[in-house]
Structure formats: C-alpha cells, structure tokens
C-alpha cells in the first residue's frame, strides 16, 4: 500500500502513456477516419494528463480545450462533410512503402533514443520555478501569462497574425468558386 502511494505518479504516468500509445496506434491502424479521429482524441486526453504530471496545468487545460474541443470537432466535421461514399474503397496501405517506413522509423528511433539517453540526466528541477510570477509563487497559469505577455509579446502578436492568415485562407479555400473566373 505504501509502495502504491509512493509510486502513484509513476503508475498514473504509465497508464496515461499506454492510453496515448494505443490511441496513436489506432490512428494509423483504423481504416475508418471516424474511428481514427476518436482514437486520436484518446491520445490528446492522455497527453493532457501527462501535462498535468509535468506541472503544466495551464497547457493541460489548453490541450483539452483546443485539441479535444476545437481541432477534433473540426476533423469530425470535415469527415462528415466529405461523405464516406466520396472516399473510394481502395487499399489503405501502400505495400511497397511499408519496409522503407519501418526501416526509417527504426533508424530514427535509434538515433533519437541515443540523443535522449545522452541529454536527459539528473533529477528534474524544483517545480516551484514554474509557478513564480516576479518572484511571487502564484500559479502556473499566471506564470505562463506573465512570461507570454512580458518576454514573448512580439512572437505572441506574430502568431496571432498567423492565425488570422490561416482563418482567411481556410475561408477562401472552403467557399464555392463563384464570381469572376476562378482558375481552380
């Protein structure tokens, strides 16, 4: 029982990691896009749980709201919009690519694995720094907001322009071709 309490965070982490990996496998294994999207939803929620364990509570909330709430709804909406009968029944796997994909994946995993073992040594730093606002311990959300609006104001504004451009682009691509001769 004591062992269970001492290692509670690890147990939760391994459960969440298993869910995340199972969801990721489901994304590339399910033939139906709807099943793949729901599987991806499981991965997103599990990763949000890992964010909480990593003392990034604000990002966990953002992950649930933006990914699970926004992007996933967008995916499901488009899957419903381009009706299933519009997707011809064809072999989903390109067999001649599978060996290359496996070899490249294993090579990549080995390469990055070596980097991971070399890079991450020593215990993690004290989590208190992640909730410090101007030297006062407040909370993770306040700390991220403080850093975002004080140290990273210009990137913040630039990324908002990126979002605006993406919104306009999506509208332009999504509307029907009307008016003066669209080439497409």
């Amino acid at each position: 029982m004591t062992w269970f309490l001492v290692h509670f965070a690890e147990i939760v982490f391994y459960c969440l990691a298993a869910v995340a990996l199972a969801g990721a496998v489901g994304v590339i294994a399910f033939r139906s896009p709807v099943h793949a999207a729901l599987s991806l939803l499981g991965t997103f929620l599990a990763v949000a749980g890992v964010f909480v364990l990593m003392q990034a509570e604000f990002l966990a909330a953002v992950q649930v709201l933006v990914y699970a709430g926004g992007i996933m709804v967008l995916f499901l909406f488009v899957i419903m919009l381009v009706k299933a009968r519009d997707i011809p029944d064809e072999p989903q796997y390109v067999h001649r690519l599978v060996p290359a994909a496996v070899v490249l994946g294993v090579l990549l995993a080995a390469l990055v694995g070596v980097g991971i073992w070399a890079a991450s040594s020593g215990p993690p730093a004290d989590g208190a720094a992640l909730r410090l606002v101007a030297g006062v311990p407040l909370g993770n959300t306040e700390a991220v907001g403080w850093s975002l609006y004080r140290d990273y104001l210009l990137p913040f504004e630039v990324v908002s322009i990126v979002l605006l451009v993406a919104m306009i682009g999506a509208i332009v691509m999504g509307r029907k071709e009307t008016g003066r001769g669209g080439a497409a």
Partner: peptide, 10 residues
C-alpha cells in the same frame, strides 16, 4: 520541468 524554466511551456 527538467530545467525549471517556463520558456518550454510558452
């Protein structure tokens, strides 16, 4: 978390 630095979260 490892470095105790908020930049990663931002």
């Amino acid at each position: 978390r490892q470095l105790g630095d908020l930049t990663g979260q931002v």
